[in-house]
Computed example of a mutant assay.
Amino acid sequence: MPIKFNPEQIQQFKLQARIHSRSSGSSRTSELDQIANQHGFESWALLMKHAGPETQTNASSLDQFADIVRGNEFATYFSPAPTKCDMCRKDLSDEKYFVDAVIRNSTTWACMCEKCFNELGAGIAWGEGQLYQNQRNSRWLMVGGFPPIAP
């Protein structure tokens, strides 16, 4: 197992996940986790911790799941706006994202900060979890985990 993954490898993994999720109907999150499993990691988030420094920026690990354009078109906001992570009680007001998701190996849903979601969340997909972006006006716009598009 390589200790570091370069940007080209990370992009190739993401492309593989996108292609396979479209052909199989599974979520991109589960496909990324499968790729991580193939390389000896429990989840995609843990694999990304082993990405080389050139792939690690100040960007959120959740940026890859955010579709801002579709979010603005869909215009769905979480209401009432959560103020704290249900798991660690961290204040969410200065966070870029939170995820309303199923807790892994459970049927319980929770509003989670990024750290708790990476450790405990089932995924970002319809029926697994929705990603919300902070609009800085006490509103949280859904930017991931949309319902399926009707054919």
Rank of each mutant, 00 (worst) to 15 (best):
N58Q: 11
S106H: 15
A36P: 06
A59R: 14
F98Y: 10
G121K: 05
L62N: 05
I124N: 03
G52R: 10
M48V: 07
K49M: 10
D91H: 08
A110F: 03
E128N: 02
S93G: 00
V69R: 12
T107H: 12
L141N: 01
R139W: 01
A36V: 06
M142G: 00
Q56T: 12
Q130C: 12
E73D: 12
A66Q: 02
K90A: 12
N58R: 08
S61K: 11
P82D: 09
E42C: 00
W109A: 03
V69P: 00
R89W: 05
Q133N: 00
K49I: 01
T83Y: 02
K115G: 04
W140F: 02
Y97S: 03
R89Q: 14
M112A: 05
A122L: 15
V143T: 12
E95R: 06
K84D: 08
A125S: 14
A81D: 07
A66P: 03
M142E: 08
R70K: 15
Q135I: 03
Q56A: 11
R104I: 07
G52D: 15
G121W: 06
D63W: 10
D94T: 11
E95M: 05
Q38G: 07
F74S: 05
M112N: 04
R104E: 14
C85E: 01
L46I: 11
T55C: 12
L141E: 01
S138V: 06
E42L: 12
V143I: 12
Q130V: 02
I35V: 15
Y132I: 07
N105H: 15
S79Q: 15
E119R: 12
E73H: 10
Y132L: 04
F78V: 04
P53F: 10
E31S: 09
A51P: 10
L120F: 13
F98N: 05
L47W: 03
P147V: 08
A75G: 04
E73C: 03
A45V: 05
A51S: 15
N118V: 10
G129Q: 03
A66Y: 02
D86W: 00
W140A: 01
S93M: 09
A110R: 13
G71N: 05
C111Q: 15
T76K: 14
G123V: 03
G145L: 08
A81E: 11
C116T: 05
A81K: 09
F41I: 01
Y77D: 04
H50G: 03
G40R: 09
D100E: 13
W109S: 06
E128F: 02
Q133V: 12
S60K: 10
D63V: 11
I35Y: 04
H39V: 03
Q38I: 04
A51L: 10
E114Y: 07
F117C: 06
Q135F: 01
I35W: 04
E114V: 08
I124S: 03
A45H: 13
L141G: 01
A36R: 04
Q56M: 11
M142N: 10
F65T: 00
N72S: 08
Q64A: 15
F98H: 15
R104P: 00
K90S: 08
L47R: 03
G40Y: 09
C111P: 00
N72F: 07
D33Y: 07
L47A: 04
I103H: 02
G71V: 05
S138A: 14
S43L: 01
